[in-house]
C-alpha cells in the first residue's frame, strides 16, 4: 500500500504499526465496497490511488442494504484486542468489547479523514450518502 496513505493514518492513530495501519485501511475499504453498487464502486475506485482502489474489489453487483454500522465496523473490531485478563469472577476472559468498539470507531474516523483528503467534493458526498446509519455521521465528523 501507498506508504503515504499508511503514514497519514499512523499520524492520526497513535501507536499503530505500519502493518496495522495498512490492514486497517484495507478493512475499511472492504466495508465501503459492500455498501456501494457496482457503478458507484467503480467511480470511487477511479478517484483513488490504485493501491486503495484495489481493496474495493468484490463480486457483488449491488450494495448490501442490510450492512449496518455494526457489520461495517466488525472487521475492524476483529483486529483489536477485545479479550481482557482471565475473569476470576465469572470464568472465561474478561471482555473489552466496549472500548474496542470505541477504538474501532476512532480508527474508522482516521481512515475516513484520510479518504476525505484524497477525494473531490462530489465523490465525498456520494460516499457519505451511501454509508449506513451512524457510519455517515462518523464520516462527517472525520
Amino acid at each position: 500500500m501507498d506508504a503515504d496513505i499508511v503514514k497519514r493514518v499512523q499520524e492520526k492513530v497513535e501507536g499503530l504499526t505500519s502493518a496495522e495501519a495498512a490492514h486497517l485501511v484495507q478493512s475499511v475499504m472492504q466495508s465501503i465496497a459492500r455498501v456501494l453498487d457496482r457503478a458507484d464502486r467503480e467511480r470511487l475506485a477511479r478517484s483513488l490511488p490504485p493501491e486503495l482502489a484495489t481493496h474495493l474489489h468484490t463480486d457483488m453487483e449491488a450494495a448490501d442494504p442490510l450492512v449496518d454500522e455494526q457489520l461495517f465496523v466488525g472487521p475492524i473490531v476483529s483486529r483489536l484486542p477485545t479479550e481482557g485478563l482471565y475473569d476470576q469472577t465469572l470464568g472465561g476472559l474478561d471482555v473489552l468489547s466496549v472500548p474496542a468498539g470505541d477504538e474501532a470507531t476512532r480508527r474508522l474516523r482516521a481512515v475516513f479523514s484520510v479518504l476525505k483528503e484524497l477525494l473531490q467534493e462530489p465523490e465525498k458526498r456520494r460516499l457519505e450518502a451511501a454509508l449506513p446509519g451512524d457510519v455517515a455521521e462518523w464520516y462527517q465528523q472525520a
Binding site: L71, S78, V98
Partner: peptide, 11 residues
C-alpha cells in the same frame, strides 16, 4: 459486542 455478526442475523 460492537461489530458482532449477530447484528447481521438480526437484520
Amino acid at each position: 459486542c460492537p461489530g458482532c455478526g449477530d447484528f447481521g442475523v438480526l437484520a
